[in-house]
Amino acid sequence: MLLASILLALAWAALQGDFSLESLVVGYVLGYLVLFVLGRGGVLPARLTQKLWHATALGAFFVWEILLANIRVARDVLTPSRTISPAVVAVPLDITTDGEILLLSALINITPGSVTIDLSDDRRTLYVHVMHMETPEQTRHEIKHGFERRVHRLFA
């Protein structure tokens, strides 16, 4: 709560374009009030700090994956002899809610080298087209222990 309202105060000052003490105090008070009202209304998740931490961890992992994937796909495009081995792999899901599945597939899609094709009707299997597949088990393992685990932790 304290950390979150300091962040909100900084955001307020940044948007005002003026980092004076005055605007920081105003931002802090406003942020605290908003968080207080939201907390009373039951809109905020209970462990806000922990969520922020998981979200940051997911964000950092995501940026790292994006960099790796971009370099990998760049190499595929540049090598004249084809080194790619594309495949459509079925990934069984442990996550169940709409929000989790949406976030997971957005992350998969935004990473170069993988695109979600479809979700099965029972919503338990996600079909993913990948640029490189050694074995289907390895691809499944990468997605489940990379993005899915972190997404699940964020929503748990």
Binding site: I84, P86, A87, I117, T125
Partner: peptide
């Protein structure tokens, strides 16, 4: 050259 299509199989 696509190695596998598990959606078709399913």
């Amino acid at each position: 050259g696509t190695k596998l299509d598990e959606r078709r199989r399913d």
